[in-house]
Design a protein around this nucleic acid. Sequence first.
RNA 1: GGGCACUUAGCUCAGUUGGUUAGAGCGCAUGCCUCACAUGCAUGAGGUCAGAGGUUCAACUCCUCUAGUGCCCACCA
Length: 892
Amino acid sequence: MTELPKAYNPHDVEDRIYKVWEEKGYFRAKPDPKKKPYSIVIPPPNITGILHMGHALNNTIQDILIRFKRMQGFESEWMPGTDHAGIATQNVVEKKLYREGVKRHDLGREKFVAEVWKWREEYGNTIIRQLKKLGCSCDWERTRFTMDEGLSDAVLEVFIRLYGKGLIYKGNYIINWCPRCMTALSDEESQHKDVDGMLYYIKYPVKDPERGGEDHVVVATTRPETMLGDVAVAVNPEDGRYSHIHGKTLILPLLNRELKLVLDPVVDLKFGTGALKVTPAHDPVDFELGRKHDLEQVNVMNDDGTINSNGGEDYVGLDRFEAREAIIEDLKERGLFVKSEPHRHAVGHCYRCHTMVEPRLSPQWFVRMKPLAEPAIKAVETGDIKFYPERWTKVYLDWMYNIRDWCISRQIWWGHRIPVYYCEQCQDEAGPAAGVIVSKTKPAKCPKCGGREIEQDPDVLDTWFSSWLWPFSTLGWPRETPELKYFYPTNALVTAQEIIFFWVARMIMAGMEFMGGIPFRHVYIHGTVRDATGTKMSKSLGNIIDPLDMIKKYGTDALRFSIISITAQGQDVFLSESKFELGRNFANKLWNASRFILMNLKPGEVAADLCVVYDTAELSFADRWILSRFYSTLRSVGKCLDEYKFNEAANAIYEFFWHEFCDWYIEIVKLSIDRKTTQVILYKVLEKSLRMLHPFMPFVTEEIWQKLPREKDHEGDSIMVQPWPHIQEKMISKEIDEKMGRLIELITAIRNMRAVWNIEPQKAIDVVLNVHEAGGSKAISENIEFIKRLARITDLKIGKFPKPKNSAAAVVKDIEAYVPLEGLIDFDKEKARLAKEAAKLTNEMNAISGRLQDENFLSKAPEDVVGKQRERKSELELQIKKLRENLENIAK
RNA sequence: GGGCACUUAGCUCAGUUGGUUAGAGCGCAUGCCUCACAUGCAUGAGGUCAGAGGUUCAACUCCUCUAGUGCCCACCA
């Protein structure tokens, strides 16, 4: 028999084991008509990312699912990959080049993109390597990248199809503009954060030659610099304060531009002064007002957020915030500044660089979302796609019902370039699509006029425009591959909440549109990992607990088990380093228990066909109990995993293995360790427990499993390809569980007396058990040996005995346990102890008595509940009676 | 402004469709290096389940309100 080393050192084994798994091809999956498919796709981490705790949680969950399903006999495909993260990656490489003294624009587009590819070759796979450290059993040979040839083709295909259906259009609208990244962003990429700003009140004079401009309107704004682009002032037609100036013209201060006064009910009478300055090129509301009232659009900003020539000589070239200050100063000088007051409001920020977003008029490409949303809404409403936890359904639907068009063009270089070409000659023609050629490759000449001066649109597509195709583009779409046919739709999507709109919703829309069906059946949304104070972990805050550090310190299995067992379904996780001790200690316990069993196992005894013993009379009470507990645990673990309750599954295993198998069963069988049946049960339960635990702690279970004697029905030479244990329903017995529960209570009570009376652990004691009921008596008399051992009893008398003199007493159900303690007992103390116990029980009994006298309860409660209460009551009566007797005895 | 979640032991959190004695880990106290494990063993202390009301025979669990905390969404400039 191979023995385990005294201590488990994760680092010795993890890399070695992982390599073997990979070499043996256990991670691979391919269409197999004889098996059912189970597939999930990894939420592609971006190539600039490194593994953080959120990834660790996310991927541990997925690996548990995949390993569980693989063991259950599914053809399990877990497809990994990364996305190119257009803006983030471009920023990273740009910064790197800048440090080397090279500017992006000096380099030129082609060379810059080549630099990004170089960077990605070098650093882009960091996260993949880290996922391997985490033990992820991904099908690495199918690793995909959103900029791969196949996936890129899918992106172009989709663009062309949507364009053909009229679902993609170009237009000049207000979009979110990041002046630092110098690109448009989608609504989702602009994250609202509350900002303490100011609300500025400014006088706009009324043009009135006769009265010399004394009359004025005060407007309120949070962004005074945008006044440079003002073309009107709007008031509510109902607003009596302004009825006298209806139809008049106003003068824009500083620039002396004439402003129309427009009347519109969207203006809120209660906000500010009820007068709204209208800047159609810099605000979505004003944009709509401008369209409605046919106003000019004056764009006053450059791409970098500085004021352009439309903003007047005094301000041109100033940054938007510098311009704000300058304008306020100038207004004050002219007596047009009324006041400013603190104003807290939500402002969009770039999700990549956190710069304040500038709403701005800009020609961009959009996807018309309403038609795509309809089938995606239905897929969730009908339950074809289910969210876990269920509450996310509402969040998803609310967003989908109110979906807005998606701005997909980005003014950066790294990404899929928009497959749109413009013919120089045709562009002058009228119509929105004039001169536009949509094509996967650059056409040699214009199909319309034959012109050869053709330029491609300089913009690239939003990264999510490739990610939303992930569930099928990774399987080969638009080609009809066998993989696509077999593995689509996938079974589950595991992801974090912050990505529901970015990714989950859009994948559903893409799946419905291009595959004609859902991309996944279940969406499991896990919680966000936060630090101990509840703040989201992020690099910039420096509150990161690095999973790789934790792996170094505690081991991968410890990391995995810890994070899973403290994460309740969908709840956020508050993490501190000490939490990882939980998993480390459990791995250690598992190791030592296994070591103990292996030390005592005789291979000859356990190599035989083992299932047979379940039916024999050879099984002891304890054997039956541990089997009952094991299968009951196995059953609930399977159920929990199917319901995405990973922590409950992990905790069920923890409780079973540590507190039932180790604390009780192993301790019990130390007496009969050489007995053949004991050997078989120890081996069986350990081996099956390892399999049950393998999805959670893949490395340590493999290492131990490799050292076990082999059964002939083991196929393959790794635990990860063993079948998930079969549940033996007939071995699960509530009755045995309950009986054992009594014995445990009894033994605990005796140990308690030992502790209370300070009896040295080594010192053996005599115990007298007064047993009244035949049933109870049997359970005890059959198990005398282990009761004696576990309570350290020398002489155990069972039967109807009077209370021995000078003895401590405990009452468990219908059993009294007496420990003769000649000379040791402080009678008053023992009396107090018993009295306290009796009082506690009396309290409970009074409550039950009350209930049992209540006619409503008796008539309306189900029978079994009433029955149980009656049972409990008589139990309590007996116990209390005995405790009282003992109290009296002590008095004597 | 709308929505969601959370409030249970000193700390961090579980608690299955309402139904026996509300659990765990850590921490704490006491005693143990008992020949698998001190990353351990044994025993114990500690809870009006945020507050108020309601439904019910029965509420930690369902409903309403209040307070606090956190998150998401949102074009009141």
